[in-house]
Amino acid sequence: MPEFGSLESQEVRSYWEHEADDFTPWLAAEIRAEPASKLEEALELDLAVLEEEKSVGRYNVDIFAEVVDDNRKVIIENQLGSSDHDHLGKSIAYASGVDADIIVWIAPRFYDEHRDAMQWLNENSREGVDLFAIRLEVWRIGDSEPAVRLNPVAEPSEWKEKAQRPQNELSDTETLREEYWTTFRNRIEEENSVLSARKPFPDYYYNNPIGKAGVELQFTIKATENELGVALVIRDDAELYQHLVGDREAIDSQFGQEVVWEEPEETRAGKARSKITVTKHAEVQDEARWDEYTEWMLQAGEQFHHVFYDRLQVY
């Protein structure tokens, strides 16, 4: 019979003595590193750190970041003790000072009144402002290496967010996209995939990290063209694209369909972007076939991860 050890909760100050000097630099480094950090997995968002200890009035916000996909502004407030009114007030003040879209408050223990306050703000703030209370946990099993867990205890409700929208705010196409990406996100979670579950939005694309900064997997819906796509998108790195082109024959042979290579082109933002893409004809409006379509996307995305992940790490 197998023998199992017991999970033992650790005091977080045994690993980070000081919030600003120890924990904040560690968390910022985790967000900057590849693959996705535990915080990004908890939020289901890909983040980019803009500034640590950013000055906001008389105080400094621990981490000022943005969402990679849509540039929403994020403030992250850390503490290594139990939640308190001071940090709750600072989080709101910082968000106001930088016009943030997302507030993330991290602490090892949350009192009920602070967790409830965050949830109340989620339910009563305008759509587009999201608040997260994240419990910082460190665990060990016997003499094992410590493991960090970031556990959301208060977060936005997708159902309430959608219910509070003004009628007809989204077009029929946007509604279809959001529902499709929700189905795809749920499938990623159910299949325990190497892909990362991300919050669905009504955009034509659904992005995923692949372990290298400036590179991402991009899933797309082109409803008017009846086409689904999966692509490796490379931003501002023509040398990396040419490096992969040098291995094009081997890469193409690993896919069971045509692979389209798009040379770097300048975007409207003045940045170069190149893509490596596979596509599938799909009647996306036919919801009865979404299981088939999400299965194809899942398999194609995992194939891209298998083909490119190691190649991206050595360049």
Rank of each mutant, 00 (worst) to 15 (best):
E30I: 01
L228F: 01
R268G: 13
I234W: 01
S253V: 05
D84M: 08
I75A: 00
Y15G: 06
L217T: 04
P200W: 11
P202H: 11
A29P: 00
E239G: 08
E52C: 15
A95Q: 06
W261Y: 07
Y241Q: 03
V98Y: 13
Y309A: 07
Q254P: 00
A20D: 14
Y241A: 01
A163S: 08
K162A: 12
L43V: 11
T224W: 04
E137P: 12
G246Q: 10
L150A: 02
E40D: 10
L121E: 00
D99F: 08
R289A: 08
V259R: 11
I210G: 02
R115I: 01
P202E: 08
E266W: 04
R165I: 00
E239K: 13
S6P: 01
S144T: 15
S157I: 10
Q303F: 08
D101K: 11
V138E: 04
F219G: 05
E19M: 09
H87D: 05
E191W: 00
F4A: 06
W120A: 06
V260W: 09
E51A: 12
R149K: 09
E53R: 15
V98D: 11
H281P: 06
E52P: 01
L176R: 07
A42Q: 10
Q167N: 07
K212D: 05
D99I: 03
V215K: 03
K275A: 10
R115N: 00
I102D: 00
V67D: 08
S82W: 02
R109S: 08
E263S: 13
M297I: 03
A95D: 05
T175S: 12
P108T: 00
L195M: 14
R109G: 02
L312S: 05
E295A: 14
S157G: 04
A48W: 13
H281W: 09
F219H: 13
P25N: 08
K73T: 12
D70L: 09
E145K: 14
N226Q: 13
K38V: 03
N78G: 01
R13M: 07
G142V: 00
A272M: 15
E190F: 09
N151H: 10
D310M: 10
V260K: 14
T220W: 07
F4R: 04
E225M: 06
E263P: 04
N208A: 09
N168A: 09
W16T: 04
T175I: 05
Q254Y: 05
A28V: 05
A197P: 15
I31D: 05
A93E: 12
K222R: 13
I76V: 14
H85S: 14
W16A: 05
D84N: 15
A213P: 00
R72P: 01
E145H: 12
I31G: 03
T175P: 02
E44G: 15
D22A: 07
K280I: 00
Y204F: 03
V153N: 02
S125L: 14
A95C: 08
F23S: 03
Y205F: 12
S125M: 15
V307Y: 06
G301F: 09
V259E: 11
K162V: 10
E17C: 05
L45W: 10
K275D: 03
S91I: 01
D112H: 08
Y309D: 04
N60Y: 13
N71K: 15
N78M: 07
D143L: 14
E52H: 06
Q119P: 01
K162S: 12
L244R: 06
V74L: 05
R311L: 14
L232P: 02
F304G: 03
Y241K: 02
